[in-house]
Design a protein around this nucleic acid. Structure first.
Lengths: 289, 289
DNA sequence: CGATTAATTGACCGACTTCAAGACATGTGG
DNA sequence: CCACATGTCTTGAAGTCGGTCAATTAATCG
């Protein structure tokens, strides 16, 4: 790598899509700058192994783009994804005493990694960072409870509906003028299956069954049109928590108000950060029913 | 209630079994005393409703004895227990934005409740309390990951073995001189079923199948003799994490060393805190093979 | 354009749920 | 002390959801 000119911490984060969301979005300007000093962005290719409890060094950082999967393998190769790390989410994997699991890239991703010791020091020193980390952890706990509940109490059909509905909250979702919207599921079928405790075949069968009854339209394997989101929410039995479960990618519901930053926040940014729909999907959408 | 004589905070906790375990066990003497000032112990009868996300006021406290279940109902009455609160565990349920769930007493229990505002103030003021709460939350996250994994990746048989094995870590377990030990499962079958995402019938069938192959002996519905724990661990596919997952009831593995308290810690206390085996179970145990 | 991977579709079958009834323990009141 | 009621646990029989295996189609990429 050629030696780049020195970049001030402020500039480093200037064009980062996650600057006002997730972990960083909950930090004061001052803490953000101090964090930037110990941060480096790492690109990660899809399906690459990011960390494992056995031999990995400690890993602390925040997701910038893409998606990681935290999973645990069963004896027979049966995998269960326990958590997804989405843009804005904090990654904090410390070796040693913990449930054995691995962290892999589900898609191509970028991870903003922090120096381990620097982060620990900053954690002691900056109460807003400590609070942000704590809040994100509490949110993850809720997400995990939801997952455990759906795995234990819902049928596969219901789980898939619940997933599709929730995915509109943490994955690219473009509302359509006629109502409803187009959901871009950035995960391959195998990962959805491993998350929902089922098989790719069942996912396929059920999504097509959902399409048959008009609950969704399958534009292509990664794009679903949802004409009536509330219907899918109901089919997933998550009416009671659809709005209240929090994801770091959707900051609107977080209790803490946005701080005054001295600049006018750019409302277009969150949408611009999303990858555009594929050509084909756009075609199918614009030539809708 | 007759007016009791004033009790100093120190005396209040003097004979509490959880004094050196769980949340309280991780606090400095000073913080413990300050916490005692805002604490009151509440007995809870089995199956009583302790809290629900809808209408309950905020609830903060620590389990002293017994067991609570945190659960979520499905549309058809299908319930999933997402977490168990065991002695030493912190209970901290704040209303409002959160995954809708309920907290019920799985057994007769005692809950040491803290004044909400006092606790929040103490949390800001005492870093050891904040650390303890954080550590317990991280542990719960691990437990929940384990649950999600077992629900998604394991067969029912494996889940039951994993549960029985883990239960030796967080429920009364008396090692026997000949090796193995007797596990007291304080939960009724219905709760085990709701935790493992199965039915009481299947639990019954599989435990008896396990007994048939000699993996366990059923002394009575609540007492299982486990001749070879490592075998059950292997059958539950949790070799890799059996020792490392932490529970507040088993403090030995926690990283933080016990603080100097000025008294010799009583090694008999943890065992004495456990309820004794029933008469019948003792009979069957002593007249073993 | 072939080669590789991902997604779909079909057929089969077995594990687990469900429904229903029996066994067992515990408690209550006469 | 027994009869009766209640709740928990166990056992049996039938039906089905959903996983596995195998084959086909579609998408992706040198």
């Amino acid at each position: 790598m050629p030696a780049l000119p020195e970049v001030s911490p402020e500039e480093k984060c200037a064009d980062c899509a996650m600057r006002r969301q997730g972990l960083c979005g909950r930090l004061s300007e001052a803490t953000q700058i101090r964090l930037a000093q110990i941060a480096t962005v790492h690109p990660v290719s899809a399906n690459s192994h990011v960390w494992s409890v056995d031999r990995g060094p400690d890993l602390v950082g925040v997701m910038v783009s893409g998606c990681l999967r935290m999973l645990r393998n069963g004896i027979d190769g049966h995998r269960q994804i326990c958590s997804l790390a989405l843009p804005g989410d904090i990654i904090s994997e410390t070796g040693g005493r913990s449930l054995a699991h691995e962290v892999e890239a589900a898609t191509r991703a970028r991870l903003c990694r922090f120096d381990q010791h620097g982060f620990r020091r900053l954690l002691e020193d900056a109460p807003d960072l400590a609070r942000a980390v704590y809040a994100l952890r509490v949110a993850k706990l809720d997400q995990l409870r939801l997952l455990a509940w759906s795995l234990g109490a819902l049928t596969v059909d219901e789980r898939i509906c619940a997933f599709l509905a929730m995915a509109t909250r943490f994955m690219p979702y473009s509302p359509l003028p006629e109502g409803g919207g187009v959901l871009t599921v950035e995960l391959p079928r195998a990962d959805i299956a491993d998350l929902l405790g089922t098989s790719v075949e069942t996912i396929s069968r059920i999504t097509h069954r959902l399409a048959a009854i008009g609950a969704i339209r399958i534009l292509d394997p990664a794009h679903f049109e949802i004409p009536d989101l509330s219907r899918v929410v109901r089919m997933g039995c998550i009416q009671d928590c659809f709005d209240s479960v929090r994801f770091s990618s959707s900051m609107t519901e977080w209790a803490q108000p946005r701080r005054h930053t001295g600049r006018v926040p750019d409302p277009a940014l969150p949408d611009a950060a999303r990858p555009p729909l594929s050509r084909r999907a756009l075609l199918r959408v614009s030539s809708g029913p």
